[in-house]
């Protein structure tokens, strides 16, 4: 597996990081993933992420820094697979004529994966209440009845979820 060349626009700091650690990161990922192609993709995406993060100060622990980003990307890709599988299973239970086109399905899965990432870390009840409000667009009273809690609790859950989104989006 040959290493991809660093993108031409790499800033000097990132370029030296790339030259010094790309090979090591790819090896580290190969040991973790047992799949060379995935390891190469994620090693590459890790550096793209470093570049996008506008991280210009010197990085004290470059390998710890890189593996942290790489782990996040691996988990994102696994979670995306899980979401996609769950979505297709849910679709399979619906009448076929309701199913969106394959292209639309792909866009929906992307959106669902983004939402899943955004909501990561929410308590299950908060997550459920928020999803029922946002996706199903149920009135709070109906969500409260379904979940067996008061309307006031649902309001608190939804506000909490919104605050969580605010923090993640501000990051």
């Amino acid at each position: 597996m040959s290493a991809l060349p660093p993108p031409a626009s790499f800033a000097p700091a990132v370029e030296s990081l790339y030259l010094a650690h790309h090979g090591w990161l790819q090896m580290w990922l190969r040991k973790k993933l047992a799949n060379a192609a995935d390891a190469a993709d994620i090693a590459h995406d890790t550096f793209v992420r470093v570049l996008a993060s506008r991280h210009r100060t010197r990085i004290a622990e470059p390998r710890a820094f890189l593996t942290t980003i790489a782990k996040g990307l691996v988990i994102d890709s696994w979670r995306r697979q899980e979401i996609e599988r769950a979505y297709r299973e849910a679709l399979a239970l619906q009448p076929e004529q309701l199913a969106p086109s394959p292209e639309t399905q792909l866009l929906i899965v992307e959106t669902l994966a983004r939402i899943d990432r955004l909501l990561d870390g929410l308590k299950p009840k908060v997550r459920t209440a928020f999803l029922l409000a946002q996706i199903e667009e149920l009135p709070y009273a109906e969500i409260a009845q379904r979940m067996g809690v008061t309307v006031r609790s649902i309001e608190r859950y939804v506000a909490e979820a919104l605050y969580h989104c605010h923090l993640v989006l501000a990051d």
Partner: peptide, 13 residues
């Protein structure tokens, strides 16, 4: 297909 989206996010979690 809102149902499928909700199910997917719940089951995925």
């Amino acid at each position: 297909a809102g149902g499928a989206s909700f199910e997917a996010l719940q089951a995925g979690a």
